[in-house]
Write a protein that binds this DNA or RNA. Structure first.
Lengths: 231, 231
DNA sequence: AGGCGGTTTAAGGTTCCGTTAAGGTCGCGC
DNA sequence: GCGCGACCTTAACGGAACCTTAAACCGCCT
């Protein structure tokens, strides 16, 4: 049984592209051109995941999201325009499960849909444990994905966005070695690394923030890359 | 099996440069001088990734892209002229997986091609996980490829990058004899061995790390090379 | 316009690992 | 047993890879 996904966006072109990619992955697609239609479809059809554009005529994505949270319980991915409000979104967070910023790479959207479906429907049938689903724990470090905050033994450590994405990469795969290229791609969301010094500076800052000897957490493997210790 | 890449650009010089660099990386190249030819080639040949110039006579890159999205599913990198429209592209175009702006550094193009191929074809088959993800076990030795760590009866042994590659060679083919030349090529990822003393020093260090009498693990075959004992 | 936080660039310092070299050991043929 | 060639081991060295700091830069917000 295929998952049914709602795409809510006022631009037909975007709906089209998303539909193409997602159908290729075997999902069933339902489209909505505005917020009120989105709400109606969620009420009437059985939707497993919703992609909501924030900027829509009439009822915007935020209000649709609130509506969903009041009545249903399904994973929601917000789509927002870059720059204009992407930072704000990270800051105030209204309970969405994930975000995509426009313009986006279709494959990224597919990957996020996949991963959210998996996370949501994997274990308990749709019953999600909000706290654990969005926080990563490795040793005495805990990374809260909602708030972009890292905790070491409960002590809170602030991270920048790049640092956050790097820590996420490490903590999703503890013990694994990543090359600087891979770290760059994860942290900067860019394919072409001009200079690897960037990555080194960032690792250095991270180590400083982790205090004590930061090298207890992130270790250098000369000639290969870096690894976060498992325990 | 080499990836096959389509280069679609009306300037022969650019095609030539890209071809040179990409062939050096072991990719197979197919060229198209305009959009209609590109579409034909994608339909007829088996293409794994397409590089499309936006400005082409006849059918432009956008239309080729849309055509690809309707019929096939492969990563597409757009090539655009700098300044004139690069920003616009980011704004309104949504279907491409990546962008390169002219003039570009060839190595950047290569990096983007590589990274997009990896992203696209890694997830799907999961064959990369088999290649990288598994640990090698021989006797009481276990080599974790993810973390570049060797374990002897659970006790952890750190390796340098050269040592790691040599152990990998041995443990992928336990019981087989390798000449110093072969060991050099695996460990140093270079063809020409200046002096075989290098290899001997490294084997010596490895034996020391394996403790006890390291020769229980790596045996010398006089006049031939070395062999890792099967068990 | 100006400040602020975060990223990039640049430069100098440090570390570590592969290299080199030199002296020792082993094993095989005589 | 002797000798030679192949192999082993150790330690010092040099340089590439890495670290760190600070200043420049940049976009964003007030």
């Amino acid at each position: 049984m295929a998952y049914r996904i709602l795409i809510a966006d006022d631009e037909a072109e975007i709906r089209e592209i998303l539909r193409l990619y997602l159908e290729k992955e075997g999902y069933e697609i339902v489209e909505a051109a505005d917020g009120t239609e989105a709400v109606r479809l969620i009420r009437e059809e059985k939707i497993d995941l919703a992609l909501l554009d924030i900027m829509m005529p009439g009822m915007d994505g935020y209000r649709v999201l609130r509506n969903i949270r009041e009545e249903n319980n399904l994973p929601v991915i917000m789509i927002s325009a870059k720059g204009s409000d992407s930072d704000k979104i990270l800051g105030l967070d209204l309970g969405a499960d994930d975000y995509i910023t426009k313009p986006f790479v279709p494959l990224e959207a597919v990957a996020r849909v996949k991963s959210n479906l998996r996370r949501f429907y994997a274990l308990g049938a749709g019953e999600r444990q909000k706290e654990q689903g969005t926080a990563l724990q490795v040793g005495n470090l805990r990374l809260e994905q909602d708030s972009c905050l890292l905790y070491r033994n409960g002590e809170r450590i602030e991270l920048t966005s790049v640092e956050f994405r790097i820590m996420k990469l490490f903590m999703e795969n503890p013990g694994r070695v990543f090359t600087k290229q891979q770290i760059f791609e994860a942290g900067w969301e860019e394919a072409y690394m001009v200079s690897d010094n960037n990555v080194m500076v960032c690792i250095s800052k991270l180590r400083a923030k982790l205090e004590r000897d930061g090298r207890e957490y992130i270790r250098t493997i000369r000639g290969l890359g870096y690894r976060m210790e498992k325990e």
